[in-house]
Design a protein around this nucleic acid. Structure first.
Length: 210
DNA sequence: TCGATGATTGAG
DNA sequence: TCAATCATCGAA
């Protein structure tokens, strides 16, 4: 029987920004049951953002203190942190932090659709591939991710939502994070610069890595 | 209890 | 460029 490989707990037990960068090229998988049949909706992660611990990151949900919403960010690494925003959208993170930090998570901003594209199109009510999963709210809708997935163990391939080992990304780029007004100096958005599925194109202000 | 805000999206 | 839409959180 085919064995699924996933980045293990240790992978997420490192600096949040490093994990964010190394998640590019792995795969996000949503296993969903519809009418007693199982389907895997999946995509290659091509865009992430790191959100840090308390004082170090003014833009982080974990900036001021532990609350009910941000509690996964303060808990074990490798778990889902899902939140609802703008009255419409869910966003999905995976928790990650070094041992000397209180909190941390990586927002998954865009994936390239791999499997289950037909279902993604129906969940999104759109057929255009480019608009399916390019953006945190879009990909959550495409993969039917809701608060029910909050705190799931994303290192466990039995979870309804997990991260599977992919081929990685040889050259990636970092830029300021999208949609924030604070801590805009931090280059904590990571992308595969060759991907056509980014939520926003990379412009002048980006740095190459490796 | 209350009001401003937001790690977004899609339409104009 | 702007409205939709509502849970969250800090202030009162």
């Amino acid at each position: 029987m085919y064995k699924i490989t996933t980045p293990d707990r240790k992978f997420y037990q490192r600096k949040t920004a490093l994990v964010a960068r190394e998640l590019i090229g792995h795969e996000l998988v949503r296993r969903i049951t519809i009418n007693n049949s199982e389907y895997d909706l999946s995509g290659r992660i091509v865009e992430t953002e790191a959100y840090g611990s308390m004082q170090e990151d003014e833009a982080s949900h974990a900036f001021s203190r532990l609350t009910k919403r941000n509690s996964p960010m303060f808990g074990p690494v490798g778990r889902a942190y899902v939140y609802f925003t703008y009255g419409n959208h869910f966003c999905v993170n995976v928790t990650a932090k070094a041992d000397n930090k209180k909190a941390g998570a990586v927002l998954i901003r865009s994936i390239e659709p791999l499997t289950g594209i037909g279902l993604m199109q129906s969940f999104r009510q759109r057929s255009e591939l480019r608009e399916l999963t390019s953006g945190p709210g879009r990909l959550s809708q495409a993969l039917a991710i809701t608060m029910e997935m909050n705190a799931l163990d994303m290192t466990d391939p039995c979870s309804e939502l997990y991260i599977q080992t992919g081929k990685g990304c040889a050259t990636c780029a970092c830029t300021p994070r999208i949609g924030i007004t604070k801590a805009t100096n931090k280059l904590w958005r990571f992308v595969d610069p060759t991907s056509k599925f980014l939520s926003r194109p990379i412009s002048k202000s980006f740095a190459r890595l490796e």
